[in-house]
Amino acid sequence: MTERIIIAGSGGQGIMLWGKILAQAAMIEGKFVTWLPAYGAEVRGGTAHCMIVISDEEIGSPYIDKTDTLIIMNQPSLARFKSRLKDNGLLIINSSIVEAGAKAKAKRYPFTDIAVELGNVRVANMVALGSYLAKRKTVSLKNILGVMKMMAPAGRDDILKINQKALDTGVKLRNG
């Protein structure tokens, strides 16, 4: 089994971190994993994306041509990446700031609005991570939480708590 994932959004939405947390958890589970960031001449407010490949076998290219899962966190990313999704691939869209118009099968959730309700707009990425893991059980939630604990800055339990809450909220989201 090989799962290829592209997550794309804007700088500041925690796109890279999203991929790193997933990749770390996959490593803990003994899987082969690669994480490849966009490292172009990116600018503040511009687009950011990363590619994650998780597999039971040795991974060839870390670069993803056609992806199994595409997670779109802002409008420009949809135009840029929608052609990369495999025909039966999973498309998850942040409907708070991305207008409809994508494939009908797309799962749409207001990640940014949910994060604001939780009290911090920056945890929209963790809501998205939760919703993704509910659909594709690529890694266990337990290991994701373990990685979050490891990454959280010391003495800032509040940060860890709100991220965990965001993850849980994401897991419980109904199909949009």
């Binding site: 994993v33 994480w35 960031p37 870390p62």
Partner: peptide
Amino acid sequence: DGMLGQMMEP
């Protein structure tokens, strides 16, 4: 190359 330098792996 740039891909190898940028990518993360265990």
